[in-house]
Deep mutational scan, measured.
Amino acid sequence: HNLTITQGKLFFHYNPKLCLSEIHKMEEVSGTKGRQERNDIALKTNGDQASCENELLKFSYIRTSFDKILLRWEPYWPPDFRDLLGFMLFYKEAPYQNVTEFDGQDACGSNSWTVVDIDPPLRSNDPKSQNHPGWLMRGLKPWTQYAIFVKTLVTFSDERRTYGAKSDIIYVQTDATNPSVPLDPISVSNSSSQIILKWKPPSDPNGNITHYLVFWERQAEDSELFELDYCLKGLKLPSRTWSPPFESEDSQKHNQSEYEDSAGECCSCPKTDSQILKELEESSFRKTFEDYLHNVVFVPRKTSSGTGAEDPRPSRKRRSLGDVGNVTVAVPTVAAFPNTSSTSVPTSPEEHRPFEKVVNKESLVISGLRHFTGYRIELQACNQDTPEERCSVAAYVSARTMPEAKADDIVGPVTHEIFENNVVHLMWQEPKEPNGLIVLYEVSYRRYGDEELHLCVSRKHFALERGCRLRGLSPGNYSVRIRATSLAGNGSWTEPTYFYVTDYLDVPSNIA
């Protein structure tokens, strides 16, 4: 807008934040220059609390790290170098490059900038070799853009010569660093050979998330399962459950009422301010606690030095998902009996873990797994792929695949051998790939016309006998059925096997 004052003059007093240069501009645009008398524009009460600059400061050096910015700028000295009290560095987070010096300023003089007072450097006698002032900004957020400017702080001049310097606002972004852990990993099994893994992005990506790394490792069953005799009275049979499938998407929606109208769909109840505040506090606490764990609990591995020492970490090797089922080394339970199943799973520490690289999504279907087997899954978020990966501390989750139908069934015939004193040795093959492992066998036998009897055969007993022995049988026709019990439950009964026990007292003698 054009402003013209045809008559009258300007009068400025007691404006401590208004620089004289701005008042002189007002004289020019209003056409009143030359009308004012000496005392109409006070030299001592206008701009006496402001830094009124008329020179431009330029930054000469900028260096960044993930949490620091090192700045240096060209030296500046007023005509009387004693008038320079120091520099004021202003900075704040700036997602967009549209910041002005006066953003967030209120009537009390406060604003949204963080201000650092910096002492002037030592003055050199040689004007050509003056030290460049600077400042190291610490405690910054990774991968965050900051708006920065600097200006001088000078003393009051009796001659009211307006001098000083100020830089333009520059924008500097800190470097990326390792992201925080992925949030809320959930693993479920939808079949006997697959596990579905879902997660949420890290709360602090500290860069642009480029991919996720998912490692999985087959877990050995508890050692007590191999040692305890679950045929003993009072000892509860062990059981394991597989990871249940995901709930429906509708039930997972946030901010939804727990109660549904019987007449149909209901609208979600909005969260109160107290609920939102509580969630923010919980989120802040979780982030602080995660940072504490990362800094205190997890110790970084030592990389190899120039002395030739090897990095103890196993090298990563990509495998196809079809090879995942046989990740671990199978060892027989008892070496003397080769027909026992290889369900003991000690994992070799030198073995390469299978892994998958996930790009542009937060889910993965891990296939080719062994049925009813526990897996430990390790999830890392990465925001750099080359020249070397920059990934987060791992988040861990466990899951067990679903049982395989008929995996616990005894394959092959049940054979028998009759000894003296009416002892019958029953023999059968253990299931080759049971659900988890076989903890015991149930032997059901009966003599024709009598009630059915049951015998429990422990895992250890089966390994020693290759089956079991029935003792003290009365003469007669017998039928026997056997079924295995694994961590997933009972298998199917075998087809009945028949044998006849004679009275050993009636056996004919070869003595003449």
Rank of each mutant, 00 (worst) to 15 (best):
E265N: 11
R483T: 01
I482V: 14
T303P: 14
S243Q: 09
Q256L: 13
N206H: 10
Y441M: 01
V331W: 14
G234E: 14
A399N: 04
T288G: 11
Y212I: 10
G491A: 06
F215T: 05
M402P: 07
V296S: 12
E388W: 06
L277I: 11
A463H: 08
K432C: 09
D409W: 06
S492N: 03
T401D: 00
F337P: 14
D323M: 15
V296C: 15
C231K: 03
P354C: 13
M427R: 10
Y504F: 08
N422S: 14
P475M: 08
I366H: 01
R400Q: 04
V480P: 01
E310K: 01
F285T: 04
S344A: 07
A512V: 06
T241K: 09
D222P: 06
S342H: 14
E249T: 10
N421S: 11
L321G: 06
S203N: 15
M427W: 06
Y478N: 00
R286I: 04
E442K: 11
P300G: 09
N421T: 10
K302D: 15
C269R: 09
S283K: 01
D323T: 14
K233S: 11
D409F: 11
K233E: 14
S239N: 06
S283R: 12
P387R: 07
A407L: 10
T494M: 04
V327Q: 13
E247M: 10
T210N: 03
W242C: 02
N422C: 06
C391S: 01
I276W: 09
T497Q: 15
E389K: 15
Y445Q: 02
N326S: 14
E281A: 12
L237I: 06
R301T: 14
Y478Q: 02
N326T: 05
V331H: 15
T502E: 15
S367G: 09
S398W: 03
S479W: 06
Q275P: 07
R447N: 06
Y448F: 13
V327C: 15
H371T: 14
R240M: 13
S283D: 15
V296F: 03
L473M: 09
T415P: 02
P238R: 06
S268E: 12
R466V: 04
D229W: 04
E404W: 07
P300N: 05
D291S: 06
P205V: 02
P508I: 04
L473G: 01
A309P: 08
T272E: 12
T502V: 13
L237N: 06
G325F: 11
N339M: 07
S363Q: 14
N490D: 03
P434L: 01
E249L: 09
S243V: 08
G472T: 06
N255V: 07
V214D: 00
C468F: 06
F215S: 10
L455R: 08
T303N: 14
R390C: 12
F285N: 04
F355M: 11
Q429E: 15
Q384L: 05
A405H: 14
E433C: 13
H454R: 10
F355H: 12
G308C: 14
G368L: 05
T333M: 13
L213V: 09
T502P: 08
N435C: 02
S342M: 06
G325C: 14
L225A: 08
V414I: 13
S262A: 07
G467W: 02
F372W: 07
H425C: 04
H371Q: 09
G306H: 14
T415Q: 13
V424E: 02
V397I: 01
K406V: 14
S392A: 02
D506R: 14
T401G: 00
E404T: 05
S398T: 13
K317H: 14
S398L: 13
Y445N: 02
T343E: 09
T386M: 03
H461L: 10
T502D: 04
R469V: 09
R318W: 15
G368Q: 08
N490C: 11
A463V: 10
S284A: 13
F499M: 06
N490Y: 15
S474K: 09
C266R: 09
H211Q: 07
W493E: 02
Q380G: 06
P496A: 15
V334P: 12
E221N: 04
P300Y: 03
P387Y: 07
V443W: 01
K432S: 14
L237A: 10
S479A: 07
E404M: 13
G436W: 02
G322S: 08
R301A: 05
R353E: 08
I410V: 15
E247K: 11
Y230L: 11
A484N: 00
L321R: 09
D273Y: 09
P312L: 14
Y259N: 11
P245I: 14
G325T: 13
R286L: 06
S284M: 15
A309H: 14
S458V: 03
N326V: 04
S342T: 15
P403R: 07
M402D: 08
Y292S: 09
E290F: 15
A381G: 05
F298E: 08
P387N: 03
T347F: 06
K406F: 09
R286H: 06
G476M: 00
R286E: 14
G374L: 09
N435R: 01
T340M: 14
P508R: 15
S398Q: 14
L235C: 08
E279H: 12
F462C: 02
I377F: 06
H294M: 15
T288Y: 15
S458I: 07
V297G: 12
F337M: 15
S304L: 10
E282K: 04
S251G: 08
N206P: 03
V501M: 05
E495V: 03
F419T: 15
L225F: 03
F499D: 00
H211A: 07
S223F: 02
T343Y: 11
S348E: 11
R301H: 12
P244Y: 13
E356A: 13
S398F: 03
K361M: 08
R481G: 02
C468S: 03
I418R: 05
L453T: 08
L437D: 14
S320A: 14
Q275F: 09
S248I: 12
W428L: 00
E389N: 12
P349T: 10
S486V: 01
I276E: 11
A399T: 08
G374P: 10
R218Y: 10
G476S: 01
S492T: 08
G308H: 07
S444D: 06
C468L: 06
E420F: 12
L437H: 04
S248P: 09
V296L: 06
K236R: 07
H425W: 08
T485L: 14
D291G: 15
V345D: 09
D261F: 08
K432M: 05
F246Q: 11
A381F: 01
C266D: 13
S257G: 07
E378S: 07
V397N: 13
S444P: 00
K317R: 09
Y500P: 03
S283F: 14
G306D: 13
S274M: 03
D408W: 00
K357N: 11
S342D: 06
Q252H: 08
E404Q: 14
E258P: 12
E281D: 07
Y445M: 09
S268M: 12
E417M: 05
